[in-house]
Structure formats: C-alpha cells, structure tokens
Amino acid sequence: MSGLIGKKVGMTSVFDNIGRNIPVTVVEIEPCTITQVKTEETDGYNAVQVASFDRKAKNVSKSVKGHFDKAGSKPKAKVMEFRDYLPEGMDIGDELNIEDVFTVGDIVDVVGISKGRGFTGVMKRHNFGGVGDATHGQHNRLRAPGSIGGASDPSKVFKGMKMAGQSGNERVKMKNLSIAKIFPESNLVLITGSVPGPKGGYLEIHNKSSVTN
C-alpha cells in the first residue's frame, strides 16, 4: 500500500460541489526521500522506507547519519515503512511528492499517536454514563465505576475490566477518510474529518485507492 509521511497542521472546513460545509484536517507533506528498499530475498518482506522533515545532523547518531548518507539524504526527523510498495522507476535517494502518491478523491487511512491525557477516571476514559437522575440516595456515586467483580465467585477481577488508568498516547488509525484538496506548491493536503494526535504530530497516510484486488 502506497503512502507518505505527514505532519498535522490543524483543522478547517471547505465547501463541496453542492454547498455542504465539510470539516477537513490540514496536513503538511514534504517530499519524502526513499532511504531503503526492502525485498523478500534480503529482508523477508517487500517494503519501501521513506524519511521526511529535516533534522539537525548533530542530533542523530553516527549510525543513523550513515544510513541517510547512503541514500544521499540529509538526516530526517521521521522514518516510516510502507509494505508491498515501490514506485515504478524509483530507487534509493529519489523523492516522492504529494502528486506522485495522492490525487483528489483518494481514500486514505491515517495513523498517528493520540493525545495523551494522563491518568484518567472511568467516566472520561471509557465514556461511562453515570447514575442518571441520581435518585434512590445516590448522593456521592455519580462518577464512580460501580462493581468490578464478585466476592466469593469468581473471587477476582477479570483482565480487561474497564477502570481508571492511562488514557490516550497510543497508536490510532482513522480509516476511510478522503483527500479533499491538494496544494502541491505549499506541500499541503486537506483530508476529510479528523485525524489522531496534536498539532505538529507526525502521521502515516496510507493510500487505499492504490490497492488492487
């Protein structure tokens, strides 16, 4: 599946052809350099490794710098792989631009790291509904989790019980979004709907329209 690396800029909205106001996410996609090509013979699977967004050379290790030097590229901040994909006629050191991979109307999956919210109660973490109208003496249990298991049987709390804990800061995939507009001169793409992560967060954008059945 083809794809590129992006960075979340923020959200806005655009009007479609019939006058509907469509919310979109603005994503910056700089030219992505092909830094490695993996094959079934050498690596056990087929993939293309791409890197994007410049990084200062002093902030990378010698081994990582050597990897970029081999591809004739400056050090990059983000490196990702896209399985079973290699652009025709391109090799290590070549650059992929927005229009090489995406066109308006393409269906995409967007992967990012969601915003971390720290240690969170069950109401916020799992969207619990609470007591409701708070009748029958429920004076201080409005945001409590309730029972978490039996006493004598089964005498334990089952694994996976919805309780308070770490919320967010995890890999999230938003499926079946679409490319609304492309601004190649500004390295910007408008993707319908919302995508995971904060402003400035890195994204994997997979083009599902390029998959052939």
Rank of each mutant, 00 (worst) to 15 (best):
H136Y: 11
G129N: 11
H67P: 00
K78G: 00
Q138F: 09
G112Y: 01
I98H: 07
K78P: 00
P87I: 14
T120L: 03
V108G: 03
V64Q: 08
R125F: 08
G121Y: 04
K74V: 11
K78L: 02
N127E: 15
G89L: 04
G112Q: 01
Q138C: 10
E88W: 01
S114M: 02
V101F: 07
G160E: 06
M90P: 00
R141G: 06
P75D: 06
V64W: 01
D94V: 03
K78I: 11
D153A: 13
A134L: 09
V131D: 12
M90D: 02
R141E: 03
D91S: 15
R83T: 01
V157E: 14
L96I: 03
V108H: 05
D133T: 10
D153C: 09
M123D: 09
G66R: 00
I113R: 01
D153Y: 15
V122K: 13
E99Y: 04
D94Y: 05
S73E: 01
R83V: 00
G132K: 00
G105R: 07
R143L: 12
V131Y: 02
G130I: 06
I92A: 08
K115H: 03
L86A: 12
G105F: 08
K65P: 00
F119S: 04
I148K: 15
S73L: 05
V101C: 07
D69K: 15
D106S: 05
H136W: 08
H139T: 15
G129C: 06
G130N: 09
M123W: 08
D94N: 14
K65N: 10
D153H: 14
T103N: 13
G66K: 00
R117M: 12
D91F: 06
H136E: 09
R141F: 10
V79P: 08
K159W: 05
F82D: 04
G160I: 06
H139D: 11
N127R: 06
V122W: 07
T120R: 03
S152Q: 13
F68W: 04
G132L: 08
I113A: 01
G116P: 12
A71E: 12
R143G: 05
P87D: 14
V111A: 04
K74C: 03
R125V: 01
E95D: 13
S63I: 08
V131A: 13
R117Q: 10
A144P: 00
D84V: 02
S147Y: 08
E95C: 06
V111M: 04
K62L: 09
G93M: 05
R117V: 04
I113Y: 01
K124A: 14
V110N: 03
G89V: 10
V101H: 05
